[in-house]
Design a protein around this nucleic acid. Structure first.
Lengths: 198, 198, 198, 198
DNA sequence: GTATAACCGAGACGGTACGTCAGGTCTTGAT
DNA sequence: ATCAAGACCTGACGTACCGTCTCGGTTATAC
């Protein structure tokens, strides 16, 4: 990442880089993940097929890269209260799931990750985990302020924040998520955090 | 369903019916949804390809049928309290998501449903909705008993029950769900139901 | 060969059979062997690529079949004298080498046979040997008539009949063979047969 | 050839020159002409692909150069009689056709020459013709000595000397030529020269 | 001495063809 | 009317080379 490691030979064309990722996102939005083919992406990007394979070894790898290309990591500042911190995260998530390319790609991508553990690990470490980390930090700040007790399993909190959106977005047909769901999931988790574990 | 409408000519072989569905489930469990092909199912079931197509017009249709073949509707009796009603439902759900064939099929199936609205509707109406209906009934009974106020959006409750399991099961790699998640989700929803909507 | 062995399943289409071989010969005549591709043949025959591969496993196999399709075995009657027998054979050979498809295919085909011994054996046994056999028979008849002594190595005679035509046709650029070469080669071999072996 | 036309800039590396030709001959002997690729030659010679293309514009051009590199022109002294002159030539030819690289390259090379008239002309003028010229000279010497009448078409004699070897070497599978064929072809041609043209 | 020009390796580029696989449809003969 | 078998066209797969190009760097000759 820091040093581009100046390899020998002709360097890869940046124009092709973006053309490929843009074509991928466009095809995903228009046709959906199952109809996403390397062939089609190459054709649409005006690029030879090997030029795509040189960059990404498989369809899911290409999809993950396109996703990262579209949704860079945004910093999540301290909003002062846990509620506002979580609200910011959830608004972002609603927007994410409402993106056409995302909603048409996610299930298929997850399906393909099932047969490629390496890529699945990269997907989690480079895409999911960094986003969840900001929730972890918000929870730690809230515990430090005394708003809540430090949760035993922060990952579980993340599942509760993301899960209901996931269910709403994918279990039925194509549904746009109501922005109010950001608040609803936030309140759900806050209630869960305050309730005695029984 | 009720009347099989006795057509003329040679009737379809019931042995083939079950051979096809069994082969489908076996392949799903072993290879996953992306590797599920009509060709492969026919080969494994010892059946010609048209024999499969005569029954199911597409891969997702076949998968839905195999799922229904495996997970028939089980009645959900009144356990007396909302907590116990929901616990029963959630134990069932955890078991469902822990089934190998299910966990390897669901994301891919949902992806394919994205480009087949008719089948998506059938999937929801014939598979998802009946299961959610038992949650609806439990909520109505609890409201009648005065345990809770009648919830404005019962579907949202269902999303909160299923969502966290979904997130845990599919966002990362292949994970078996801890049976304790049945209780955790139940408590989460109960806490949410009792909290003021703010 | 004798019994078509009535296999099960849909039988191969005879129209495709001839379309493929005709397309092959046309491409050979127009573009030459190095430019002969399975892809191109399929396109030109209006046929899918697997339809070609189902019949012929490789380019040289296809070329051999096209050759056999074009040049069926013609019977060679007894002309009464060795000279006339050989003349008939050589006229046929000149015509063969003057066929555009043949002259553009032969060197490339022979090159490919170099890396496929099985096909090379079939080419010799099913195409070359039957044609040479008629020369063998003519020599035997001539020996029986007392025209010549029975030659020690009839294959060598065949090489001397074919070789000069081969050299003329292929060592230089594209050359049409003068019909007079049929007589010239015949006289050469007759002279050789009568000369003392020294 | 005479003046290398001293260009400016860095001169071509002679080591690469020979590495390329040696790699070409080695690959020809081991894999045959159809498997000869510029890529493979470059790899084997430890050289970049453009370094090959800078020298030879195509595969057949490279093959011709490799052939010339291997078989330089050898002077053919006057042996005193036509028979001995031709015997020397034919021994050389048998050796030539028995060279592994040659026998695996010739048909494929001839096939490629069919679609490159310029190279075909150079092949004939720079490789074939000089070798045939020594036969022409031998015939002229024999005519001057009164051994034979001056032949009307010396090229035809050459075809009769080379053709039978060609047929033996290439029409069937991979065959080593018997050294006795040098004598056999010589006697054949001598018999032909003495026979009345009828 | 230094500029210039051609060389060199590595490797990306758009292509084309490879040989394979599965899709979904059809045709056959038999049950 | 169903069945197994298998041919059919289609289209995508992932790979190998093609012949060209762009790099950064080297090496001789020519100024």
């Amino acid at each position: 990442m820091p040093n581009p490691a100046p390899r020998s030979g002709r360097p890869r064309s940046v124009e092709r880089d973006v053309a490929i990722l843009d074509a991928t996102l466009a095809m995903l939005a228009e046709e959906g993940y199952p109809a996403l083919t390397i062939e089609g992406v190459a054709r649409r990007a005006g690029v030879g097929r090997p030029t795509v394979y040189r960059r990404y070894p498989s369809r899911p790898a290409l999809a993950v890269a396109a996703l990262a290309h579209r949704f860079g990591l945004s910093p999540t500042p301290d909003a002062g209260t846990l509620r506002d911190d979580l609200l910011a995260v959830q608004r972002h998530q609603v927007e994410f799931f409402n993106d056409t390319a995302v909603s048409r790609m996610l299930p298929g991508l997850l399906a393909d990750l099932g047969s490629d553990p390496d890529l699945a690990a990269r997907w989690w470490n480079e895409f999911v985990a960094p986003r969840r980390a900001s929730v972890h930090r918000a929870l730690e700040r809230a515990a430090a302020r005394g708003e809540i007790a430090a949760p035993a399993d922060p990952e579980w909190i993340c599942d509760c924040l993301t899960g209901p959106l996931l269910a709403r977005a994918f279990l039925g047909g194509p549904v746009r998520l109501d922005p109010a769901l950001a608040g609803a999931t936030t309140e759900l988790v806050l209630a869960g955090l305050r309730a005695p574990a029984r």
